[in-house]
Design a protein around this nucleic acid. Structure first.
Length: 379
RNA sequence: GCCUUAGUAGCUCAAUGGCAGAGCAUUCGGCUGUUAACCGAAGGGUUGUAGGUUCGAGUCCUACCUGAGGCG
């Protein structure tokens, strides 16, 4: 078994799950937030710093590493862990999301997806087998099946077709990968915003028996209540003995709402991406530190945060660094945002253990400024 | 003193005699399995001053002011 999952406790108040995943590279307490390191690096952070933040697992990307520097080169370096000197766990996305996000540079068939490289325009054909080959070469602890992510909105027929392809490809991924014992392969549930297609997709993948399940095709522009409803459709079907991974989420409210609905793993570029352009997450809501309002604010970004940035630097200094386009701005802001979300997950786990996650949600939302009148507030 | 040249948004500069613009800066917004140290929007003008020519002047003419260069 490449990974094992222990369900430690179910929150009596919310139904959220407290768990633990064991991988060849360590133990992961869940629910967990996984920082995204697309190109074999979490932008602006060193591995030591990620450890200090408390991140046990990071995400990396098949498509990007296949194009550059090449999965063969990374295999030659001894695998992705050694190449990037990350001793924790790694989950690799399959390239399926790039089929979705690089729309215009690709063509889909039942066999696979033809990409045009965003780097040099060269053509590449990606199949489920190819995705497995690349992820095997990278040596990630958790690999994702090559899937088809439908844009929002999509017609019922289009989503069903994407689901059919996703399921067929999941099976091919499973076959292509069966020789490897060190890496776990997760299937990915699709089904767009259609309840019956979501249930169909979940059941189809459960029947294939994966060691864990990704939930894809959400947070692609739909209203949040719709996403929550889709989660509620899927969860009763997924086995309680396997981890569930909500892909690409997210914002603090989505992390809490997701955990309440039984999600164990999350990833999102949001904390790192927004950090680099001056948006910070705080216990009192988001703070655009580059704004003039903070020019003479010599207090920390978030008084409740224990990160290196908040313990040592002021909002005014951070704003100065951003206005001056200094590299340290991106580093400190990323450091803070990642620590904020990792810390949020720690608080969520503690609340689950104490059977009070709904209470925690109310407290957090009140402090953060989320309101019932404005559920769609971005973050 | 004379000659040449320049003066337009905070800065650097565009604009056949025909709607005064851009980049940067400033201010603000956005970012959900990263094509992203990115993308977008807004504010900002008595075109050095005073006259003149013209249907119409940033543009042509005169004088003055300020800067740069040259000659004495």
């Amino acid at each position: 078994m490449a990974i094992t999952y222990e369900l430690l406790h179910v929150c009596k108040q919310s139904g959220a799950r407290l768990g633990r995943i064991h991988t060849p590279h360590g133990v992961i307490d869940t629910p967990v937030f996984m920082p995204v390191g697309t190109q074999a690096t979490v932008k602006a952070m060193s591995p030591d710093e990620l450890h200090a933040i408390g991140a046990p697992i990071i995400l990396s990307n098949t498509y990007h590493l296949y194009l550059r520097p090449g999965h063969d080169l990374i295999a030659e370096a001894g695998g992705l862990h050694r190449f990037m000197n990350w001793s924790g766990s790694i989950l690799t996305d399959s390239g399926g999301f790039q089929v979705f996000s690089l729309e215009g540079l690709r063509r889909l068939t039942d066999d696979g997806a033809e990409f045009q490289s965003h780097l040099d325009g060269s053509y590449h054909f990606f199949t489920p087998e190819k995705s497995m080959e690349v992820q095997n070469a990278l040596g990630s602890d958790i690999m994702m099946a090559f899937d088809v992510c439908s844009p929002y909105p999509s017609s019922y027929e289009d989503v069903k077709e994407a689901g059919r392809r996703t399921h067929a490809w999941a099976l091919r991924c499973q076959k292509a990968h069966s020789r490897s014992g060190e890496q776990a392969l997760f299937g990915i549930v699709q089904g767009g915003m259609f309840a019956d297609l979501r249930r169909w997709s979940a059941q189809t993948l459960v029947d294939m028996d994966f060691p864990g399940y990704g939930i894809g095709g959400l947070s692609v522009g739909e209203p949040k209540p719709v996403m929550y409803q889709m989660l509620e459709e899927i969860m009763p079907i997924l086995p309680s003995t396997k981890p569930r991974y909500l892909m690409g989420v997210g914002t603090p409210d989505c992390l809490i709402e997701g955990a309440i609905r039984g999600v164990d793993m999350f990833d999102c570029v949001l904390p790192t991406r927004t950090a680099r352009t001056g948006t910070l997450l705080t216990s009192k809501g988001r703070l655009v530190v580059r704004n003039a309002a903070y020019a003479r604010d010599f207090g920390p970004v978030d008084p409740d945060c224990d990160c290196y940035c908040c313990r040592n630097f002021s909002r005014a200094y951070l704003r100065h660094l951003f206005k001056s386009e200094e590299i340290l701005a991106a580093r400190l802001a990323t450091w803070h945002n990642l620590r904020f979300l990792v810390h949020l997950m720690e608080q969520i786990r503690e609340a689950i253990a104490q059977d009070r996650l709904l209470d925690f949600k109310d407290e957090f939302f009140t402090n953060y400024g989320y309101s019932a009148e404005n559920p769609q507030m971005t973050y």
